[in-house]
Every structure is written in structure tokens, then in C-alpha cells.
Design a protein around this nucleic acid. Sequence first.
DNA 1: TGCCAGGCCGGGT
DNA 2: ACCCGGCATGGC
Length: 231
Amino acid sequence: MQERREELLSIYNSLYRRFGPQHWWPGDSPLEISIGAILTQNTAWRNVERAIENLKREGLLSVKGLEKVSMEKLRAAIRPAGYFNEKAKKIKAFIDFLFANYQGSLRKMFKEEREILRKKLLQIRGIGKETADSILLYAGNLPVFVVDAYTRRILSRHNLVSEKADYEEIQRLFMDNLPLEAKLFNEFHALFVRLGKEICKKKDPDCVHCPLRRFSVSTSSENKEHFPRQT
DNA sequence: TGCCAGGCCGGGT
DNA sequence: ACCCGGCATGGC
């Protein structure tokens, strides 16, 4: 099944040639990236930037700052990112987790084995698969593939996966067929987002300018599974 | 004005 | 195992 690897790399190369390096995650520190991952849940990144700016201006963007800040003040600061009541709780839950398990140290947290840490993150209220994986990959530099709405839409629109493929299935497509390299997964996912934002939008189902056009599998084809699951 | 944006949870089938 | 409503702001 070397072919799947080649095809995925070919898709990656097409995107990279088209868009170049994306320099993700937009954030200066592992903590900022982790908090950003929570704040961006179903939210435009522009609004997350405002929330992050507020946190920085108030001197709250540190583990201790977030641990000490009152819920009221935290809610006010992250307000522009939406769902601020929920997200304030999520941030507190993450910080509590950090202190309960790693003395408040992200560095210690990321020394944990990848799969173990993923499971622990998923137990935190408000951290689901995409958020956990974003933290692992972009804050921790661990080789985990992040699946988001853009990734889904693009892959299914080109019939590279079924429309109702679940998270783990899509994630396995990449992690089972590509070298487990954080740098590759980092760039690959960022490129999907770039493509999704710029070209492969909901309004534009034909994706005329899509660099992935040549990879599309015809819908009329009998065999819709371009990447059949290994059984 | 209504839909959308780098989800997740809890309750109901 | 799915399906759905709720959560909230800002841009277009």
C-alpha cells in the first residue's frame, strides 16, 4: 500500500507548491497555542486574535496568570472569541489539569507519551479530538494529524474519503500512510486550512481553481472509496 | 438579515 | 452508535 503514501505526498506537494509554507501555529508559545486551540472552537480566527490580545494586554497569558485570574475577568477578556462562558471554563479546566498533573508545566506535560497524553487531554471537559490533537501537534510538536472541518470538506468533496468518515478514520488515513513527522503534519493540516479558506469553500462546489482537482475521484464511479480501508 | 467560522457537550433516540 | 440543540461573537 505504498501507493497511498505516494498519493498523499503528491497532494501535499501540490498544496505546498501552490501556497508555500504556512508557518503554523500562529502563536508565540506552547501556552498561547494551547489556549488558542480552545478559543478557536467553531470560531473565526480573527475573533480569537482579539481575545488573545486582551489576555496579553492584561498580563494573563501565562500559566500562573490564568490560574489566578477570576472567572469574571477571564470571561471579559475572551469575550470576542464567542462562547465565552463555556470557553472560560475550558481554559480553567485545562490549567487545573496542568497543575494537578504536571506542576503547571507544559514542558513536563509534553514529556508524556503521545497516546497517553492524548487520552488524558480528552478527559478534560471541553477538549475534544481536534483541540487535543492541535495542542499535541502545534504546541507540543508531537506527530499527530489534526482533522478539522476544512480537512473533512476538502477530502470528501474530492471523494478521497466518504462524507461520513469519522474523525479517527480520516486521521488514520494520514498517520498510517505517512512518516510520523510533526513538521509534515503541521504543514499539511495548515495547507488544508489555507485551501479551505481561500478556494474550496462551501459556495464554490466546483473548486475550479483547486490544486487538488486532478486527485478527484469521479462520483459516478462504482468504486467510491479512493482509499479503501484495510480490513 | 441570515449564515458562517480551524468544536464540544449532554440528552434523547 | 448517531442526531440534535445550545453555546456567542464579529464579518460579510
